[in-house]
């Protein structure tokens, strides 16, 4: 069996920091789905960082790169909606919890708002508080803003054995769910594609 291609090597490959022989060795492995997928994640991450869209890699990217197992949200989506054509990895475009206020506004928003982007899909999530209850309102659309049929799969990560919930997107691509404070993993189906939104801490 061929030795594993490390993420560090993939990162250097993408950054052009490898010797020619090393580049050739990696190219020879790119037909392997695992190596190709991880390279895509590395590439996505680097692009996002170059564009200044990230202060830190998204939880999903970190999880993928570290190969941390998680409840299989995609299997749930597939069972309910059929197999997706492909899976995109979302990156955080902005998170008002990290940057509560920006120039041009007279204060910040009290509800958290996180925007995600992927190659052809966007997702927005708003988390508002009412006592101990938290309400997540979100929207998943094509990058053009056009809604598409689909659903969101969500599972609580800090509660062992928590079951995956599926919420259908409405005509505008929106969904709402009441949640308790905790850590959750999120994925969505929009049209023929799945979107790995990643983990989100609800405090």
């Amino acid at each position: 069996m061929e030795p594993d291609v490390s993420n560090e090597a993939l990162m250097k490959f993408e950054l052009g920091e490898l010797a020619e022989s090393e580049i050739a060795a990696i190219r020879a492995r790119l037909h392997e789905p695992d190596v190709a997928t991880r390279l895509a994640h590395v590439r996505h991450l680097l692009h996002a960082m170059r564009d200044g869209r990230l202060d830190a890699p998204s939880a999903a990217s970190v999880r993928r790169l570290k190969r941390i197992p998680r409840p299989d949200l995609f299997a749930s989506l597939a069972r309910a909606l059929g197999q997706a054509a492909d899976t995109l990895i979302a990156t955080v475009a902005y998170d008002t919890r990290l940057h509560p206020a920006v120039a041009g506004m007279r204060g910040g928003a009290s509800a958290a708002h996180v925007a995600y982007e992927a190659d052809s899909l966007d997702a927005h999530i708003r988390i508002s508080a009412e006592g101990q209850q938290r309400r997540m309102t979100g929207q998943v659309t094509r990058t053009s803003g056009e809604p598409c049929p689909g659903a969101v799969a969500i599972v609580r990560l800090d509660e062992p054995g928590a079951s995956i919930q599926l919420i259908s997107l409405d005509d505008a691509g929106m969904f709402t769910i009441d949640l308790e404070v905790g850590r959750y993993a999120l994925a969505a189906r929009c049209g023929e594609r799945d979107l790995d939104i990643g983990d989100i801490e609800i405090s």
Partner: peptide, 20 residues
């Protein structure tokens, strides 16, 4: 409530978009 929530969602997003 569902409509008000959607409106709040749109407005919050727009508030950020308005400057960004």
């Amino acid at each position: 409530h569902a409509i008000a929530d959607r409106l709040a969602f749109e407005i919050d997003r727009a508030a950020r978009d308005a400057v960004v």
